[in-house]
Nucleic acid binder design. Sequence first.
DNA 1: TTCTTATTTGGCAATTTAGCAAAATAATCA
DNA 2: TGATTATTTTGCTAAATTGCCAAATAAGAA
Lengths: 115, 115
Amino acid sequence: MDTMTQKKYEARAAVMKALAHPTRLYMVEELQKGAQCVCKLQELIGADMSTVSKHLSVLKSAGLVYDKKEGTTVYYFLKMPCVSEFISCVDTVIQRNATEQLEVARCCIKGAQQL
Amino acid sequence: MDTMTQKKYEARAAVMKALAHPTRLYMVEELQKGAQCVCKLQELIGADMSTVSKHLSVLKSAGLVYDKKEGTTVYYFLKMPCVSEFISCVDTVIQRNATEQLEVARCCIKGAQQL
DNA sequence: TTCTTATTTGGCAATTTAGCAAAATAATCA
DNA sequence: TGATTATTTTGCTAAATTGCCAAATAAGAA
């Protein structure tokens, strides 16, 4: 694999990594509805303010959000027009996995037919 | 955030995590072209066989691939119909980031206009 | 200027992840 | 059966990630 190709996968992985956390996925979905300040996100998430801020900076480094300061308040905006389809894809995988699991249970585990 | 909602984001993050590695993204893209045995993937990737095997098991645990044994050879198959769009979305983000960076350079850094 | 509010940064411990090497499995072949 | 090939598992160490706390910044209000 040449260097260019390697760089390509590293770049993709960097974006994926930024999204690979429950809290950050939640943030992304909230921000899809509209911009929010850090304080509001903290309220929704319920973690330490510094934790929320750090998660936002991870998303920002990956270029998934940008921020805008108004007074002392910082608003974060999502810049990922394809989020919906993106998340739908992930949900499709999850749903298929669940379905498969269920089928295995139904046919192979006694007492699971009625599930 | 209720438990159900939390579970949802954790499930999504688990899938994302499985994809958040250059090697695994490469594997996914190779498998999109068609099933491959571990040996072939190792050859393409050039890492230790055990490393390749472990990456594949991560993808498998996330339900992104399944495997089929033929003799001593194990073939891996991708089961993620939406991969293409998924990766396109990531690439879109990367490209926009690159474009923005370039614009910043052009307008704000002396000697960068000709880029 | 000092106080207050909103946010970011630095430090640190706990957990997770990555990748190699060696040992364990599994299936086929001689 | 013993040898061979393909793959997985285990053990280990190094590196990265997470989240809280405390300290540092930044902007506006008193």
